[in-house]
Design a binder for these strands. Structure first.
Lengths: 219, 219
DNA sequence: ACAAAGCTGACAGCTTGCTGAACGGTGTGA
DNA sequence: TCACACCGTTCAGCAAGCTGTCAGCTTTGT
């Protein structure tokens, strides 16, 4: 397995690298987000280990933008004990697991193993929704047996509904999901994407609740 | 959320139960594997907290047989520091997370929250009111099991009552809530909205107190 | 029984959302 | 390197349904 380690602390980084290599994986080590981005552009990784505090930015927006671009690479977050909110936000942003520093190296091995296993052999859990079949892990949607191609933004949006079934999601919430932070957007981008999703997936997949937001499901 | 705690140590068990209940979840506590199995047979749980050393057996085989039966209920393992190999085996057996004793109770809350989020089943506290079921976080109301569609204004109004149960709310107070301040409205808007709410939710959801205002609940 | 307070059906205006079209940016293949 | 395809955003005109108003009716308290 090829693993990208993004971590600016030399002591931790060295220990992690040695452990992973001892487990028989290969490691690339980036100490900044920009070099990490370069590495990702240049090669395909099976797993990312992502520290949240880096010299040139925070890990969460990085992860969000990665997911927005359509990456499905599993991510394990490495974080300090006092960053609970970050960890939760990290899981929301699309991380698969997290480890709290200081962590035991055997734990790291176990987590890597279980994430890898989750993505490897076992067939993905498939969701049914009306005439739709959804494989979340593979980012694949079929309608009446035929594959539907969703763009990156469309998928991020749709995924938000899948992960919050029956919840009302305001446009603000959805924007927050599409755009890492900031985003005081005065446009109807969300509406347009919703429109396209409905066109591809069927009109009644997403319900409008006027003045409040959107919800997965009919009526 | 309904949680099954499987733990034979009374001190730890009590602390865990209190923490979880403080977080607003309900807890069933089994001190042996056989009573845990009974509990699982009799009710549906959203999460299992599983100690690995119990008087009538070890937790790992228990977890394995649970998974073999097809259960997908999330499981968090509670384990002592010196049982690293067990923890690794636990993740392999299908656990979702683990905590090392002695653990911080805030850490427990965070892990429960994130596991729950990952499974995103029905994490919201649900309120019952006569034949109504209300999920405030999801902005969802059901009457006799069927979803009721509230408009934005109607929801704001209804929410005011939910957040001030048994309180008398004057029309002025309610107007203030609907319209950001100012609002020198010389009409019966509130009455109209109350009327519409009663039509959708049932006549006795909101009581009129003549000359004073409205109150949640019958008579 | 009377007056005051509250209720509710109808309706028009207006906010909100929908969607086709066009534009600009980015990446891709020849 | 250039042309092309694709994606995301913006805009404008249109459609839909929410919301406030009002009038006439019902209820309540005295």
């Amino acid at each position: 397995m090829r693993i990208l380690l993004i971590e600016d602390d030399r002591v931790i980084g060295t220990a992690v690298r040695e452990q992973i290599e001892a487990d028989g994986h290969s490691v690339d080590w980036a100490m900044r987000l920009d070099t990490a981005a370069d590495a990702l552009a240049g090669a395909k990784f099976d797993l990312l280990l992502l520290d949240l505090m880096l010299p040139d930015g925070r890990g969460i927006p990085f992860l969000k933008s990665l997911r927005a671009k359509g990456s499905t690479t599993p991510v394990i977050i490495l974080t300090a004990l006092d960053q609970i909110s970050d960890r939760i936000e990290g899981l929301n942003a699309g991380a698969d697991d997290y480890l709290v520093k200081p962590f035991d190296l055997a734990e790291l091995s176990a987590r890597i193993g279980s994430v890898a296993r989750r993505y490897a052999g076992n067939p993905n859990p498939v969701l049914s929704l009306g005439d739709l079949t959804i494989d979340q892990a593979a980012r694949r949607v079929e309608r009446e047996g035929k594959a539907v191609a969703l763009t990156a933004r469309e998928w991020v949006l749709f995924e938000a509904f899948l992960q919050n079934p029956a919840q009302l999601l305001s446009k603000a919430k959805l924007e927050e999901r599409l755009y890492s932070y900031d985003a005081e957007i005065e446009s109807n981008t969300i509406e347009v994407h919703i429109s396209r999703l409905r066109k591809k997936l069927g009109a009644d997949v997403i319900t409008t609740e006027r003045g409040m937001g959107y919800r997965l499901g009919r009526s």
